[in-house]
């Protein structure tokens, strides 16, 4: 027999349960999943397409809940995350764990029953990857944590694609690679100017472990790989000139901003103009690139 630890004072509100799903992060997941779904050859009934996006969103929310269940101690010491439901004491860990597991199981079953089982398997793996491999295993043990975490965020367009076609070909793998190689420059740019917060939490972020200069060089290096991946769909003839022109233009700008970060020597976070510009542009870059992919498919398909 166990004593229920749930205090009546900590009955989680619906708003806090919603906050546990990291709605802002989810918006990017939903966007890339919709793009994967719309860019895939073939068609999907709107009801099934909506269900696929819903399942992907719920899966992302479940991953976020499990992430916060495990990272309540780190979140408590970081200013950006200290007001989340768990570190702020508005919810107990048990609730977050149950909510995360329940949502995971429901999202995978919904995807499998309503859409197809390949999408469901990839969704299940992406939740496992984010919650266990990234959050529990690697985030606290390697400065490459962001690179590995990027893989978890790269699954949504693949799942969206698989929901339509029932298979995974080279194109969704390239979409995966774009997000995978976009993540390190995006997050390291942020980590460079909020370095102190990660240091305080003891998370081995690249700028903390390898130093700012090494991180800046890696940001520049990753931008080149990202550019190659972004232009590849056009180069292999899988997209039209519209996407090609957009990908080349955006990637040139991204590479320029990344190399500006690469040569920067600033140690004062408030003076890190190049890093802040890259961080802001990286968000626009991903939205614009995936938007161009869908537009290209709609216009030239």
């Amino acid at each position: 027999m166990t004593i229920a630890s749930t205090s009546p004072h900590k009955l989680a509100s619906a708003r806090d349960l919603f906050a546990l799903t990291k709605p802002r992060v989810m918006s990017l997941v939903i966007f890339t999943a919709i793009c994967g779904l719309l860019a895939a050859p073939g068609s999907i009934h709107p009801v099934i397409g909506f269900t696929a996006i819903l399942a992907i969103s719920l899966g992302a929310g479940a991953s976020a809940a499990l992430n916060q269940w495990y990272e309540y101690d780190i979140d408590a010491v970081m200013k950006r995350t200290a007001n989340r439901p768990l570190p702020a004491g508005r919810m107990d860990r048990e609730t977050a764990l149950h909510f995360g597991i329940g949502l995971s199981v429901f999202s995978v079953l919904l995807m499998g029953v309503a859409v197809n089982w390949l999408s469901a398997v990839i969704l299940a793996f992406s939740i496992f990857f984010y919650a266990v491999i990234y959050t529990i295993w690697l985030k606290r043990s390697t400065p490459q944590n962001i690179v590995i975490g990027g893989a978890a965020g790269a699954f949504p367009p693949v799942i969206g694609w698989a929901a339509v076609t029932g298979d995974v070909t080279l194109m969704p793998i390239l979409l995966f690679a774009i997000i995978f190689f976009w993540t390190p420059p995006h997050f390291w740019a942020l980590a460079l100017f909020v370095n102190s917060d990660y240091s305080k939490a003891g998370v081995p972020m690249m700028p903390v472990v390898a130093g700012r200069q090494s991180t800046r060089k890696q940001v520049a290096g990753y931008s080149l790989v990202l550019a190659a991946c972004a232009i590849a769909p056009f180069a292999i003839g899988a997209t039209g000139a519209g996407y090609g022109a957009t990908a080349i233009t955006l990637s040139l700008a991204f590479t320029f901003l990344s190399f500006r970060v690469g040569v920067s020597k600033t140690e004062d976070p408030s003076a890190m103009r190049a890093e802040k510009d890259l961080f802001k542009f990286s968000i626009f870059y991903l939205f614009a690139l995936f938007g161009a992919l869908v537009a290209d498919r709609m216009i030239f398909a």
């Binding site: 027999m1 166990t2 004593i3 229920a4 630890s5 749930t6 205090s7 009546p8 004072h9 989680a12």
Partner: peptide, 23 residues
């Protein structure tokens, strides 16, 4: 099987009202 911890169940009327509103 689990049971409610009696130490955690005592609530003031205001807390009880807030709890019921959340429920």
């Amino acid at each position: 099987m689990s049971e409610i911890d009696p130490k955690n169940t005592a609530m003031s009327p205001a807390e009880q009202k807030a709890y019921q509103a959340k429920q």
